[in-house]
C-alpha cells in the first residue's frame, strides 16, 4: 500500500510542528519557572508494531493526560510521563525538592492536567497559525482547533498507544505520530516526558492533500 505521506511531506510537517514546539517551550518554561525545551523527535509514518514501542518497552507503566481534538485537525494529544519524572513536575510546581512527591493523588493529577492544558493549547494555537492554507479553507469559517479538557490516565505504554493509534489503524498499515521530546538545562530534572500528536484518518488525509498543494505551489 502506498504511503499516505511522502518523506518530503513529513519533513514539511516537521517544520510546521517545530513552530508549535517553540511556543510550547516558552509557555512551559514560564509555567514551571525553569527553562524547558520541546523538540520534535519524530514525524514519520511507521508500522503499527514500531509505533507501539515509541514510548519504550510496551509494558512500562506510564502516567498520561489525553486531550481529544476537533476542528480543522482532529485526533489525540497525549502528554506522557514516565512515572517518576512525571512526579518531578509536581515538585517543580510546588517549589519542593525533586523526589518529594511519591504518588499520583488528586492534586498531582490536577497539576499534570493543567500542564497538559497549557502545553497542548499553546502547541495547537501555534499549529493553527501555520497549517497549510487548504486545511483552513476546507473547514467551516467558524471551526477552530478545539481540545477537550485533559483526562488523567495510568496505563501500559503499549496499550495507550494502541488506543490512540487504532483510528488510523482501521484503514492504514502505517500510522503517523508526531513525537516531541522534552529537555531541561537543570541537571536534577530528568524530563522523560513525551508529547504525542496523533491525527485521525480524516485529518491525515486533509494534511496529505494540503501538503501536496503546498508542494506544487
Amino acid at each position: 500500500m502506498e504511503s499516505i505521506l511522502s518523506k518530503a511531506q513529513c519533513r514539511l510537517l516537521w517544520m510546521i510542528f517545530e513552530r508549535g514546539a517553540e511556543s510550547a517551550s516558552q509557555a512551559l518554561s514560564k509555567w514551571l519557572g525553569q527553562e524547558v525545551r520541546l523538540t520534535i523527535s519524530e514525524v514519520e509514518l511507521v508500522e503499527l508494531t514500531v509505533a507501539a514501542e515509541v514510548l519504550g518497552p510496551p509494558e512500562t507503566l506510564v502516567a498520561a493526560c489525553a486531550m481529544s481534538l476537533s476542528g480543522p485537525l482532529s485526533g489525540q494529544i497525549l502528554l506522557v510521563f514516565e512515572d517518576r519524572s512525571g512526579l518531578a513536575l509536581v515538585d517543580l510546581l510546588m517549589h519542593q525538592p525533586v523526589g518529594t512527591t511519591a504518588s499520583w493523588g488528586e492534586l498531582e493529577q490536577s497539576a499534570a492536567q493543567e500542564t497538559t492544558n497549557i502545553v497542548g493549547c499553546t502547541y495547537l494555537n501555534a499549529l493553527a497559525a501555520h497549517l497549510p492554507g487548504k486545511i483552513s479553507r476546507d473547514s467551516p469559517a467558524s471551526d477552530e482547533l478545539v481540545p477537550t479538557p485533559p483526562t488523567f490516565l495510568r496505563e501500559f505504554a503499549g496499550s495507550l498507544l494502541e488506543f490512540a493509534l487504532m483510528e488510523q489503524a482501521l484503514e492504514l498499515d502505517q500510522v503517523l505520530l508526531i513525537h516531541t521530546s522534552f529537555a531541561s538545562s537543570s541537571q536534577e530534572l530528568n524530563l522523560n516526558w513525551s508529547l504525542l500528536f496523533i491525527p485521525d484518518r480524516a485529518s491525515l488525509h486533509a494534511l496529505a492533500a494540503a501538503l501536496t498543494e503546498l508542494e506544487t505551489h
Binding site: L48, T49, A52, P58, E59, F156, G158, S159, L160, L161, E162, F163, M166
Partner: peptide
C-alpha cells in the same frame, strides 16, 4: 506477540501480549 501478529508454542513456553482496543 506484537500488534497484528500471532505466535504458537508448546509447554513449558509462555506466550504474552499487551492489548488495548485489539
Amino acid at each position: 506477540v506484537a500488534i497484528g501478529q500471532w505466535a504458537v508454542a508448546t509447554a513449558p513456553a509462555k506466550i504474552r501480549t499487551l492489548l488495548g482496543s485489539c
